[in-house]
């Protein structure tokens, strides 16, 4: 049924009717609500299970690939670059350097937070360069944080630790 291309400036028109939040509140549009309740239990896997166990003991564990020589953090069971199993486990330090950071005023649902959270990518001492992971900074004013700042993990007490990334409460500036 091809009739040949029309010589029109595009888009010649746009369709779609906008509705506002008020339209829904006032019942001006028809809609249907559903609140699904789906629950998940995630297996931590071989590498992260051991990593979480390390956290419970107050240790940061990494894995090493003898082929590329990288000490990888967070640890993994296989080196994704060499595509072979890792060769050994090792402990890295609970100090590191801020690679980048953000001062967040929103929670996971984009609702405002009363007190901002400082989130950072921290590359951990003892792992290969740029082997960062994401965590929270504390005991520091947002204005005083800078890229390159040395930080140290502040752990929960042994009895409070449960094998979670939150076993580290936050990272604080390392003085001196």
């Amino acid at each position: 049924m091809a009739v040949g291309k029309k010589d029109i400036s595009c888009p010649p028109y746009v369709k779609g009717r906008e509705i506002k939040a008020e339209d829904i509140k006032e019942g001006k549009v028809t809609y249907w609500e559903h609140h699904p309740d789906i629950r998940y239990s995630f297996t931590a896997g071989q590498a992260i299970s051991r990593f979480l166990k390390g956290l419970k003991e107050g240790k940061l564990l990494a894995t090493k690939c003898d082929h590329c020589g990288r000490i990888m953090f967070p640890p993994r069971m296989f080196c994704e670059l060499c595509f072979r199993p890792v060769d050994e486990w090792c402990e890295v330090k609970d100090t590191g350097v801020v690679e980048t950071f953000s001062v967040s005023y929103i929670d996971p649902d984009a609702k405002p937070l009363e007190e901002p959270v400082i989130v950072a990518v921290i590359s951990v001492d003892g792992a290969s360069p740029k082997m960062g992971f994401m965590h929270i900074l504390g005991e520091v004013d947002p204005d005083d944080v800078y890229i390159g700042m040395k930080v140290k993990a502040v752990w929960k007490s042994e009895s409070e630790r449960e094998g979670s990334v939150t076993d580290i409460k936050y990272w604080k500036p390392l003085e001196g």
């Binding site: 950071f101 649902d109 989130v119 994401m134 890229i147």
Partner: peptide, 30 residues
């Protein structure tokens, strides 16, 4: 935004209560 919560790693990231904007903020700062 509430749907974006589920792109994060369930074990390493989600316990930190992240928002999707975080990754952009971290990248922009860098």
């Amino acid at each position: 935004q509430s749907a974006f919560k589920y792109i994060w790693d369930p074990i390493l990231d989600r316990p930190l209560q992240p928002n999707l904007i975080w990754i952009f903020a971290l990248e922009m700062r860098r």
